[in-house]
Simulated scan of single mutants.
Amino acid sequence: MGRITVRRTLTKVAVGREPQRRIDTLAVEEPLEIRVSGTPLTVTMRTPGDDVNLAAGFLVSEGIISDGAQVRSAIHCDGPRVGRPAMPSADGAVNQYNILNVVLASDVAPPAAGAARNFYTTSACGLCGKTSIDAVRTVSSHDLTVDSVSVAATTVTGLPNRLRVQQAVFEKTGGLHAAALFDVATDELLVLREDVGRHNAVDKVIGWAALAGRLPLRGTVLQVSGRASFELVQKAVMAGIPILAAVSAPSSLAVELAQEAGLTLIGFVRGESMNTYSHPQRIA
């Protein structure tokens, strides 16, 4: 697996002081091409690590699979790149770990023809508009409105700190987003993942849950380190997560989708306060 961090030389400049050369630790960002049965599906810029989780989570988020058992295998490869150069690694060398080929179970329909072109757009920016909300509601296998989980407000306000203390790579680099899944009944942190992309961090969490046979994720809270975009709400809905909390602001479309899908969306979780934008009945 490729490196998660690299060391680079920088020049520290401060007003009134001599420039100083020093070594800094940076989070690695590399492309990952996800293929399904050898056919390229999408390319995402990610921090290497948990690539199988990332791919599985992406497939769940896009409605291609609804359970980890629908993935037969996932193998890094350096297969044919017709008309394209090899995928580079952080040190500029060819890295076979930047291509992941996923083989689905025989009873799972492959991605629709032309899906790859659409995913190049949606993997970075999400979909937009009322049509997209209707599509997510139609495709999702899980009805969030039946999840009556209730969580104490004091528990939610404590989640950002619990997330932060577990961010090992962020502590070294300051350059990664994080997503963590908490079980409300046990107050247990089930899984935490970091990545340069907030959507990748969430996909890694959902993929872990899918491959562990834990979907739908009823009775859980997904805490993220940044803002709550439409895409993150989409991913939570597709995984059956009833509560999504963010330390920053949600977008208008994120709130609209959360309201329609039955997801409790919380933003600005800071200190002892938070803003609940949809389905506040789950917050005790």
Rank of each mutant, 00 (worst) to 15 (best):
G83K: 04
A93W: 02
N95L: 01
A69Y: 05
Q70C: 03
A74G: 07
P88C: 09
I64W: 01
R84V: 00
Y97C: 04
R84L: 13
G79M: 07
I65L: 07
P88E: 05
Y97N: 11
S73C: 02
H76I: 07
G83N: 04
R84E: 15
D78W: 08
S61F: 04
Y97F: 15
R72S: 13
D78Q: 12
R81K: 15
I65F: 07
I64C: 01
V60I: 15
Q96N: 07
Q96K: 11
P88K: 03
S61G: 15
P80R: 01
R72G: 07
Q96W: 12
H76T: 13
G63A: 08
V60A: 09
R72L: 12
I64Q: 00
D67Q: 14
G79Q: 04
I75P: 00
G79I: 10
V60E: 05
D78A: 14
G83C: 05
G83F: 02
A74D: 06
G92V: 11
D67N: 15
D67R: 15
P88M: 11
I99A: 10
A90S: 12
S73W: 06
G63S: 12
M87P: 12
P85C: 10
I65A: 05
G92D: 09
E62Y: 09
A90N: 06
V71F: 05
M87H: 12
S73Q: 07
E62V: 10
P80E: 02
S66E: 15
A90T: 03
A69G: 14
N98W: 03
A93I: 03
S89F: 00
G92Q: 07
I64E: 01
D91K: 06
A74Q: 01
D78Y: 03
I75R: 15
Y97T: 02
G68L: 09
R84G: 02
Q70S: 08
P85D: 08
D91C: 02
S66W: 05
I99S: 14
I75K: 15
M87N: 10
A90K: 00
Q70P: 01
P88N: 10
S89V: 01
I99Q: 11
G63R: 05
H76F: 15
A90R: 03
R84D: 05
N98Q: 14
H76L: 11
V60M: 08
H76M: 10
V94R: 13
Q70L: 07
L59I: 13
R84I: 00
I65G: 03
Q70K: 08
D78T: 06
D67L: 07
G68R: 04
V94E: 14
R72F: 04
N98C: 14
Y97E: 08
V94L: 09
V82W: 03
G83S: 08
D78F: 09
S66V: 14
V60L: 10
N95A: 13
N98A: 07
A90C: 01
R81C: 00
